[in-house]
Amino acid sequence: MATFAVVSASFAAPAQPAHAASAACGFVVPQPLLTRWNQHGAEQGSFGCPTAAATSYGRGLLQNFQYGVMAWAPDQGNNMVVSAQRWGSGIRFDWGLSDPFNYDNWLINIRRYTDDIHGDQECIAHGGGSGDCGRYDGTVWWYTLQPGVYRIAVEGCDGGLRRTCRQGWTQPIYLVL
């Protein structure tokens, strides 16, 4: 007669992988870009599949997708990801999370080729401006834009007219419409 030992063990749910992508996509999406990509529906979502591997970009990472681009900007926050995607005939631009930093307002700079579009646009945390902004993140849209290459960056600031912007601008990201 055989004797069996019963071992009791508890298992934690597996952590989200540091890198993941659909087999259909062919390229890995690394963290923290993966979190943003998943929030937008992964390969079936608004960014689509990555079109190339992520590359070093400043101290962070950059990755292009079928319908947009994402960059990790650790100088502006441990999990700061800036992303732009085609939105009809315009662009949706998201940024965050900037923790451990938080800000009273954000400046967003968008250029078509080398031309500023309306200068630095201000988005005030929970108080108006040109988009939907919190102290750690935000979203702005430009609905009707001409075809071209767009360069977008964001900077978090504190204060009113005499603002202080300690962490500086994110590395710019570029999107072709």
Rank of each mutant, 00 (worst) to 15 (best):
residue 136 Y to D: 12
residue 111 R to K: 15
residue 6 V to W: 09
residue 86 R to I: 12
residue 111 R to A: 04
residue 173 I to S: 02
residue 23 A to C: 10
residue 161 L to V: 11
residue 43 E to R: 01
residue 61 L to I: 01
residue 81 V to H: 02
residue 56 S to E: 09
residue 63 Q to S: 02
residue 121 Q to R: 12
residue 145 L to Y: 03
residue 37 W to R: 05
residue 89 S to F: 09
residue 175 L to G: 03
residue 49 C to I: 00
residue 27 F to A: 08
residue 66 Q to H: 03
residue 147 P to T: 08
residue 134 G to P: 02
residue 140 V to F: 09
residue 111 R to C: 04
residue 97 L to C: 10
residue 60 G to P: 00
residue 33 L to F: 05
residue 107 L to P: 01
residue 164 T to S: 15
residue 82 V to P: 01
residue 151 R to Q: 13
residue 93 F to P: 11
residue 126 H to W: 14
residue 168 G to N: 06
residue 70 M to P: 02
residue 68 G to C: 05
residue 160 G to F: 11
residue 13 A to R: 11
residue 101 F to Y: 14
residue 14 P to S: 10
residue 146 Q to D: 12
residue 57 Y to K: 07
residue 100 P to Q: 08
residue 69 V to C: 02
residue 125 A to G: 08
residue 70 M to D: 04
residue 27 F to T: 06
residue 176 V to K: 12
residue 12 A to P: 15
residue 2 A to D: 12
residue 165 C to I: 04
residue 106 W to F: 11
residue 126 H to R: 14
residue 36 R to Q: 14
residue 126 H to G: 10
residue 128 G to F: 07
residue 139 T to S: 12
residue 107 L to S: 11
residue 108 I to F: 11
residue 21 A to V: 09
residue 108 I to S: 13
residue 70 M to N: 00
residue 80 M to F: 07
residue 85 Q to E: 11
residue 114 T to H: 13
residue 91 I to K: 03
residue 81 V to S: 02
residue 174 Y to H: 02
residue 165 C to S: 01
residue 48 G to D: 03
residue 47 F to C: 00
residue 1 M to H: 14
residue 56 S to V: 08
residue 4 F to Y: 11
residue 53 A to V: 04
residue 136 Y to F: 12
residue 149 V to Y: 11
residue 152 I to A: 02
residue 142 W to D: 01
residue 153 A to W: 09
residue 29 V to M: 00
residue 76 Q to V: 06
residue 86 R to H: 12
residue 144 T to K: 14
residue 26 G to M: 08
residue 30 P to A: 05
residue 72 W to P: 03
residue 18 A to S: 11
residue 55 T to N: 14
residue 102 N to A: 14
residue 153 A to T: 10
residue 19 H to K: 10
